[in-house]
Design a protein around this nucleic acid. Sequence first.
DNA 1: GATATTCTACCTACATGACGGTAGATAACT
DNA 2: AGTTATCTACCGTCATGTAGGTAGAATATC
Lengths: 214, 214
Amino acid sequence: MANAVRQVARQPRGDATRQSILEASEQVFADLGYAAARLEDVAQAVGIRRPSIVYYFPGKQQLYDQVEADIFASMHDFVLKRVEDADDPMARLHALLDAWLDFLVGRPTAARIIQRLIADSAPRGDNPVRFSETALRDIETVISMGVEAGVFRPVSAMHILNGVAGGALFYVCNGGQLGEARSYDAANPTELSAFRALLHKLAEAAVLQSDERK
Amino acid sequence: MANAVRQVARQPRGDATRQSILEASEQVFADLGYAAARLEDVAQAVGIRRPSIVYYFPGKQQLYDQVEADIFASMHDFVLKRVEDADDPMARLHALLDAWLDFLVGRPTAARIIQRLIADSAPRGDNPVRFSETALRDIETVISMGVEAGVFRPVSAMHILNGVAGGALFYVCNGGQLGEARSYDAANPTELSAFRALLHKLAEAAVLQSDERK
DNA sequence: GATATTCTACCTACATGACGGTAGATAACT
DNA sequence: AGTTATCTACCGTCATGTAGGTAGAATATC
């Protein structure tokens, strides 16, 4: 079979091309969304012809799935690594939010892809990994530990995800969204640390008992 | 010219069809996004043939623009009406957030369309109305009044928009996003009032001086 | 160590199908 | 009768996927 999915790349050159395709397509999918994205654009960005993409990925959908899966995996790993360094509940929550924020700021294409994903009414049948599910499990773990420790009031992880984590996505996506005058660079250290401070404040307000906020 | 844009509908029947087309297309655009949306779907939902849509709207893009413009206008009006009933700064801020939340809960298609819009990297050239700009102006007014009154600390309206208003969008969009077990109905009164309470708490944390939170 | 063979990494060219838009006929009001 | 509303039929475009070919690298063979 000519188009067998190659589980493992065989040659360094092929590896590099494959990686370039993934990166270029992440950009294109982020910019235009799945439906409007054209493989032609991806090919052009990589510097190859469109059919060569098919040499590496069976089709557009599979390419997209690969991009999405990579985003989720990277993000989850990133979060885990940051969270396990913290031990008290509030430190863990801060670490979790910081991890999300930093990941998205460093990979704004991922932010925009997730943003689009959340707009979809229902999960796509064959798509195994769902953002909100993964993210929700991560935050549920952190929250429930805080609640058990008596540090957090009992609060729906779902609501925290919506109220607080959504903010990080917005912060990244909205940077170039406003008119010339109001545009900002999400990666700008001053801007970022200001927003991070707000995020922490919001998180504390969300989980702490009303009488023990600092 | 056969396809002249009709500024005013001439007959009641035409008016009704036109309205049906707008409503159906809002649904379709929300479900699939602009690129993936097919006029065929819209026509089918309305119960007419596809070319009849062109009788009312010059083309797909113009139809979409109309839907978007209507959403922004409705939302802005909705917000204004709610905010002007409040007079002290915090009441105004709460009214603003409640208005956003209630509007989006009542019109989830709008929420998903806005969600998609924010994923776009940059404003489309010919698109006159930008969500974040309109919303930002609304919130800027409220915030700056609070700051001038000395009730709010000086805080970037942009950050409030990201951190707090984004939450309302997420709340609505994420309802059907999770697996069977975790799905929720954003319009459910219990769920909604719990989230509303959180939103208020977050807003207060964001704008009040650290020492005067209730 | 030169030659034959196989494989990798692309390419060109084409078939297919989907969707938006257009033209013109027709039905339904008033 | 004349306008308003909707239909059928058709066309053009465009993006995907497929078929098959080719240069050059890697590997085997003598």
